[in-house]
Nucleic acid binder design. Structure first.
Lengths: 348, 348
DNA sequence: TTGTAAGCGTTATCAT
DNA sequence: ATGATAACGCTTACAA
């Protein structure tokens, strides 16, 4: 492995000059002929400057860590793509870490990212309420700031971190308003794990919407954001004959669709089913799933953008690198899975 | 940010001793009392040893890079989880890189991983035939070996790399055998991009199966592994009235299902539809999709395992770190989307 | 425009 | 059992 020294020797210059030529940031003047010789030597030796050595002295690794609950979930994957798109352009390497929604591994990953001196860390999805480990995570995060790293929450909030997100509660409430507008009065809700902050917010929004409409929550079932979880929650919900079921994410809504089919309850004729997230599966489902669309790719883009800005600031000034929290707009996507309850009059 | 020096000072020992206590690998004897003091100082200062500095001298970063075409695709995501599961246990950090199936960004990522001196790089999915950039990638990969890094192909082959994979051609051929056994004679095929090696292999297997059965390939359409691509390929295929359509991955098969529904062709009564991969969407589809199941998680596990083994070997000996290629078993998963063509007799 | 030398935070090699 | 010191491969004052 050729180092900077060999390149220097081969080009007949000092390592400083090599650095000045090869360092993408350096604007230092170098004679054209010298530059040529260095470039030639570098490519001849197939030289690759060590990002490690560079990071050690510049104190910038150009690495950002992304923590998410489940890499398989398209909900997160789309956000990651947004992050990666702008990260790559800025010459940053994205380290994706799968926490499996386990606070323990989450904390371990943060520690690892700190050991590598990641410039930033982006936490995707809602906070998990788990006081013991939560406390440890918080300490880990403040430790990150010790060396000038930036931490941001994306698509969910985390205690003490600026968040780039949508308003989950408002979105859920708007969905309820839509359902009520359709004429629904018996509306069931399937929430995600209630120890996840976004789950809670969506539930809160649902309850608020119901209350504002002067209704009573027909029934609320806690589930786990999975297809299977939605399926069995639907089995518990359907016997009570709601005219609409609102699942806190698309995966669960798909499970509801399947359960309804099996039980022989027609969607949307006999029951309206709606989800949250607008993942591509919602579009391809049969019937097409009415859901809350959130700009996931854009969420990732803006989050990484914010990180970059904060990093740049704290580069010259060493002020508290401030990331400004942002709320992006969401909107309802109406598809075939929702209809007026009248459609089912007298049929059940 | 506290460094090793401060810990040493606080504990009243040399930095060497601190290193010996805190380095997880070191077996060097240290007096119990000294050890205690070092540990105390470290935790008091919230010390985190710099993985960068460590890597610089040990020449092992404990980072592995994973390159894949599309992080959103559950096909890849599941493999990544397998890799991550064993990587984490071994104290390795996984860097996931999204190439968007673009040879250019793929090469840039490899370069970046080399700059960071990643210990290994795992290429997921088939090779993309693109001679110009391909040549550059190959050079990049050999350069990796220069500093002792390991490169492996997973779920697809890459010129010159050992692969952990299934036999795609054999799998496709077996599916054809199954369809033929069902009585199908008019079988259409929707392939993935033909410049991707796995696409080609699956097509080859299909053709071989057809030929062995003494049939003629009914019709072959090239597509792009997406739902939409499968949908439009089906639109082109269905008018010719095949009794079965074999899509080279599940996503496309789902597109076929949708297209059939729209055109009013019943599955499996009028046309059998099968896929490849057995992603969870295949299980949840209506009707359930018959497909080729491949042990994707296990593929990832074994690949990372192989990488670890190779790394360990080249640690003591500096022999060519040999990863042994492996072929894992696959099997057909029969669901409701396939049936005998007799079911449709006289109906079309 | 070019070069010298002092770090960056570890581990590794010798001494003691 | 402990410590001093030289790397590791770069960037960055400071000189020339």
């Amino acid at each position: 492995m050729a180092g900077i020294t060999e390149v220097a020797r081969q080009a007949g210059v000092s390592i400083t000059t090599v650095s000045r030529v090869l360092n993408p940031v350096s604007e230092y003047p170098v004679a054209a002929s010298t530059r040529r010789r260095v470039l030639a030597a570098a490519s001849a030796l197939n030289y690759s400057p060590s990002a490690l050595a560079r990071a050690l002295v510049t104190r910038r690794t150009h690495m950002v860590g992304v923590l998410l609950g489940d890499i398989v979930d398209p909900y997160f994957a789309e956000i990651v793509r947004g992050i990666e798109d702008v990260a790559r352009r800025a010459g940053y390497l994205v380290v994706v870490c799968n926490t499996s929604r386990d606070p323990g591994t989450e904390r371990r990953y943060v520690t690892a990212l700190r050991d590598y001196r990641a410039d930033a860390i982006l936490l995707l999805g809602g906070d998990i309420f788990d006081t013991p480990t939560r406390r440890a995570l918080a300490r880990e995060l403040t430790a990150l700031k010790t060396y000038g790293a930036v931490a941001v929450a994306v698509a969910g909030d985390h205690a003490g971190l600026p968040a780039i997100d949508i308003d989950h509660a408002a979105a859920a409430e708007e969905m309820v308003r839509y359902l009520v507008g359709l004429g629904h009065r018996r509306i069931g809700f399937i929430s995600g794990p209630l120890n996840v902050s976004t789950s809670r917010q969506r539930l809160d929004g649902f309850l608020k919407g119901i209350q504002r409409a002067g209704l009573e929550p027909h029934q609320v079932e806690e589930s786990d954001f999975t297809y299977t979880g939605g399926y069995s929650a639907a089995e518990r919900l359907l016997p009570a004959e709601p005219t609409a079921i609102f699942a806190a994410n698309d995966q669960m809504a798909l499970g509801v669709l399947a359960a309804s089919r099996v039980v022989g309850v027609a969607v949307p004729q006999q029951v309206t089913v709606v989800g949250f997230g607008n993942t591509s599966a919602a579009e391809h489902a049969v019937p097409g799933l009415t859901t809350v669309s959130m700009p996931r790719h854009q969420l990732g883009v803006e989050a990484m953008q914010a990180v970059l800005d904060a990093l740049e600031v704290s580069g010259s000034v060493d002020s508290a690198s401030a990331v400004h929290p942002r709320r992006l707009p969401f909107h309802l996507v109406i598809r075939e899975s929702s209809a007026t309850p009248n459609a089912a009059k007298g049929e059940r």
